[in-house]
Simulated assay, not measured.
Amino acid sequence: MAAKLRKGDKVIVLAGKDKGVTGEIKSVDPKSGKAVVDGVNMAIRHEKQSQNSQGGRTPKAMPIQLSNLAIVDANGKPSRVGFRMDGDNKVRFAKSTGDAI
């Protein structure tokens, strides 16, 4: 099945501690049904100092469930994603406005 949310999509968080926050998807793992969104679900990771890095406590974006994300349409509102055929091409579209993504 084709993924409804993909890398580079602008999404809004629907549930959880970061509800209402928007960000861009950095990576998607369809097998586990999770995505990493820039600036969402941040956790502190402790890095050991090395020749290449200073080390210390660094914030890192952790994966969030795809069901808690919705794509942002042209109006800036959350929308569900649908598929339709545009000629010979399968196109994703925002269900709230009908515009192609």
Rank of each mutant, 00 (worst) to 15 (best):
G20S: 01
D86F: 03
S32A: 10
I25D: 04
R6D: 12
G87S: 07
M42P: 03
L14Q: 14
N75F: 03
T22K: 06
Q51W: 13
L69A: 01
K34H: 10
L66I: 11
K48E: 15
R84E: 04
K19H: 04
M42H: 06
P30S: 11
I44C: 08
V81S: 02
V81E: 01
I25L: 07
K7Q: 15
V72I: 03
G39F: 01
Q65E: 15
I25A: 07
V37D: 02
D29R: 08
I71T: 06
A15Q: 10
D86R: 08
T22A: 02
G82C: 04
A3V: 08
G39C: 06
H46N: 15
G16V: 03
K90W: 04
M85N: 12
G33I: 03
D73R: 02
L14S: 11
G55A: 09
M85T: 11
D9N: 12
S79Y: 01
K60A: 12
S53R: 15
D9C: 05
K4R: 15
K10H: 13
A35Y: 07
L69G: 01
R92I: 05
M62G: 09
D29A: 09
I64Y: 06
A94N: 13
G98T: 07
K34C: 10
S32T: 15
I64V: 15
M85Q: 11
F83Q: 05
S79T: 11
V28M: 10
I12P: 01
D86N: 12
F83T: 02
L5M: 10
V21F: 07
G8T: 10
A35S: 09
Q54L: 14
M62V: 12
S67Q: 13
S27T: 14
G23L: 06
Q54H: 10
N75M: 05
Q51C: 14
D88T: 13
P63E: 04
D38P: 01
D38V: 03
D38L: 06
A61L: 06
T22D: 02
K19P: 03
Q54K: 15
D9T: 07
D9V: 06
Q51M: 15
L66Y: 04
T97M: 07
S96Y: 00
P30R: 09
F93I: 06
R45L: 11
R92E: 02
D88C: 05
K48L: 12
T58F: 14
D99F: 09
N75W: 04
R45G: 10
H46R: 14
R84S: 09
K48M: 11
D99Q: 14
L14V: 12
I25R: 05
G98Q: 08
S50G: 12
K90Q: 11
K7R: 13
K7T: 15
D73Y: 03
R57W: 11
M1Y: 08
V13Q: 01
K77V: 00
K90D: 01
A3R: 11
S50I: 09
D88Q: 15
V81R: 00
K34G: 01
A3S: 14
I71Q: 09
R57H: 14
A3E: 13
A3W: 08
D86T: 07
G56W: 05
